Computed example of a mutant assay.
Amino acid sequence: MKKFFICLLIMVLVCHTGKVHAAQRVVTSHIISDVWYENVFLIADKVDNMATKNFTVQVGGGVDSVGGEYLYNFPNWYNDKFAPKLFYEDINGDGLKDVIVALISGAGVALSTKETHVLNQARDPYTRYEEVPVESINDAVKRLVKMERKGNEITVLIGKKKYLVDFLKFGYQPSVDPPGVGAMEDYKLENGVLYGDTNVSVSIPEAFIGSLKVKYAWDGKMYKAESITFKEAEPLKPSS
């Protein structure tokens, strides 16, 4: 796979030197299949030692691009640090594999915000991929979750399900801040279903008290949060 390994070589050289004198196209993530038309490459311009922008999703191609390829350009996509996540799986139940990309929109100490992009595959009659909207984790939480604090008790209300969390048992410094989300986010696939995860903290992001898991479903126009579950964190055990 000449083109793929050439791109990887460029990426390794740039990362090693830490210098970028001009925009260089690199393969940031890839999925290699047994057949050329299910190979997927995520290609972008190197911004600096970590960040990439101006993405292209390539579906198909292999040794000397035998058989052709589909190219989709997204000039506004930006990835802050580390490698983006890439999936190629049917997540809307139509029997056709879709491309899912999870980019890092922000990163730092105790911070990792993500955004996800989905390219639905369609055949009408020719194969094509089209980006469709995905409800953000924050928007889903605002719509489906209510959180409040009264003294040391944190209440997380999701539909008719109510969770009560005692803030004191975690041993954090006293705080009067309300609970919040969004400092740590992630997207993943489980059995063909798209999920998003975010932390629940007080004095974001230090005082972690639990996490919210967002389950997405295709409604014919976009991927929208279908349900959310809360999992309380385990208090840290005192060191001996």
Rank of each mutant, 00 (worst) to 15 (best):
A107F: 12
A107T: 07
G108W: 04
A110M: 15
S112I: 12
S112F: 09
K114E: 07
E115M: 12
T116L: 11
H117K: 15
H117Y: 15
H117G: 08
V118Y: 00
V118I: 14
N120R: 15
Q121R: 12
R123H: 13
R123C: 12
D124C: 05
P125T: 10
Y126A: 06
Y126I: 08
T127H: 04
T127L: 09
T127P: 08
Y129C: 09
Y129W: 05
E130I: 14
E131R: 09
E131C: 11
V132M: 11
V132N: 10
P133G: 00
V134E: 05
E135N: 05
E135G: 01
E135P: 02
E135Y: 01
I137G: 00
N138S: 14
D139Q: 15
A140Y: 05
A140G: 15
A140M: 09
V141I: 13
V145L: 09
K146M: 08
M147A: 04
R149F: 13
R149W: 13
R149Y: 13
K150C: 01
K150T: 03
G151T: 05
E153R: 15
T155F: 09
T155I: 06
T155W: 05
I158M: 03
I158H: 00
G159V: 08
G159E: 00
G159N: 00
K160V: 10
K161A: 07
V165H: 02
V165R: 03
F167I: 08
F167G: 03
L168P: 01
L168T: 13
K169Y: 10
K169H: 12
F170D: 04
Q173M: 14
P174D: 14
P174I: 14
S175E: 04
V176G: 14
D177T: 14
P179Q: 04
G180W: 01
V181R: 00
A183W: 10
A183L: 02
A183F: 05
M184I: 12
M184T: 12
D186N: 15
Y187Q: 01
Y187T: 03
Y187L: 05
K188N: 11
V193P: 06
V193H: 08
V193S: 10
Y195C: 10
